[in-house]
Design a binder for these strands. Sequence first.
DNA 1: ACACCGGACTGATCGAGATCAGTCGACGAC
DNA 2: GTCGTCGACTGATCTCGATCAGTCCGGTGT
Lengths: 251, 251
Amino acid sequence: MFIISGKGTIIEKRPLARKLSAFVALSDAELSVLERLHKRRRTFVAGRDLVHQGQADQAAYILLSGWACSYKLLHDGQRQIVDFQIPGDFLGLRSVVLHVSDHSVEPVTDLEVTEVFAADLFEAFAQTPRLATALLWTASRDEAMVVEHLVGIGRRGAAERMAHFLLELGNRLTLVGLGSKAGYDCPLTQYLIADAIGLSAVHVNRVLRQLREDGLATFRDGHVTFDDYDKLAAFADFETSYLDQLGPLLK
Amino acid sequence: MFIISGKGTIIEKRPLARKLSAFVALSDAELSVLERLHKRRRTFVAGRDLVHQGQADQAAYILLSGWACSYKLLHDGQRQIVDFQIPGDFLGLRSVVLHVSDHSVEPVTDLEVTEVFAADLFEAFAQTPRLATALLWTASRDEAMVVEHLVGIGRRGAAERMAHFLLELGNRLTLVGLGSKAGYDCPLTQYLIADAIGLSAVHVNRVLRQLREDGLATFRDGHVTFDDYDKLAAFADFETSYLDQLGPLLK
DNA sequence: ACACCGGACTGATCGAGATCAGTCGACGAC
DNA sequence: GTCGTCGACTGATCTCGATCAGTCCGGTGT
């Protein structure tokens, strides 16, 4: 095990730093402020909620390893998964600002996170405004993703939706070193995907089969393979600009 | 014409101040910083886009009067309206942070706005951090609305979706003095509503008829009437908490 | 006075995806 | 070893909402 001493090592070990570094050249000072947020390490086991809809909570989390999902429950028991979180993502940032969580967060796999209290976060912002801007940028990017998700559910057919979903996840994972244009490991079940893209689990299965038979992508045994990345991207009308746009204030 | 001299008058004339004042007691100093943002008044005519998808722009707008909508276009010409903006709302705030707009904004009616450059906004934030927090709160609330919208399209049936849509708009309009539990004026066409809630215009019409015949709500001649507010809210499973939650840092 | 247009509205038909009702294989508990 | 469970997978049927193809009405321009 290494002691974190240099910039490179931090970026390697901290997916959040790595993600931000893809867009801003953060100074050593800024990286170390970021590093100091990672004080309180916690772990969660798969399936037990971190955050409950309606819960008043004061802490956000930075995801270090594992996958989570944020979702909303309807009165009739249906649920809509709003987004999945992967290493480097924040959990429950909006809950902190709005004081009460409007959604729940559940680990998909076992998780490692660092807990960040609102106060620590605001203090870090005060010390390094560029960091605050970088996080505002992350939040805006998250919102853009939700909007894109909305468009998908509202207007795209099931197969395009699925293709778009797989591509977006791939893109995000690549950014933190967990994926490539060839594919990525993916611990999601077909039920989880169904709840995310607004299909029934049955139909998810059929659509996956279709993508497989058309030679576009394969999802099997916890691994997504892009059989023909470009064809898949064309099929899904996948536009990456909402994902990898630089913040103007960060250049 | 009046000269704005007192707090009451500003709140009356500025829907944004009114909206924020429903959640934070802004001081006279804060209100006047807010007022000073309203320098550059502009008007737009219905139908001509303010912001184009893919456009690099530096200014955001505060809506003073009229309605707008933000939408995304798909390659095949379909569009998904992400949200409608009413007086007191920001237009294109996310575009400023991400540098490039990921969506377009079109006036539904003629508009009066004030144009705010990013620099002015950040300067105002530096002067009064509470104002920055208040706007962060607005942005979070907008995101919560998009999420709720996502849940609606993903999981609610057409009629509930419509009911929820009408109720949410009513709630938002009430906050700026343009609506009540009885109803509100609404310049939207059935085509616009269709593009927003992910239905065809034909089906919007049928669903509106159903709500009318069931004695829940009537939308006719540019006016929405809540015939039975409570029954409608129960039908739509309408939860207001995501709309009127206080920010904890603002109390 | 007439043509034209946009928005509300409607009936008939079609189709994507939900739902129902299963099978099958892997794996952990006892 | 077998029971129970969970996820992947499939065929048959049903249904919600899309699509097609109109009508009707109230402007507005000529």
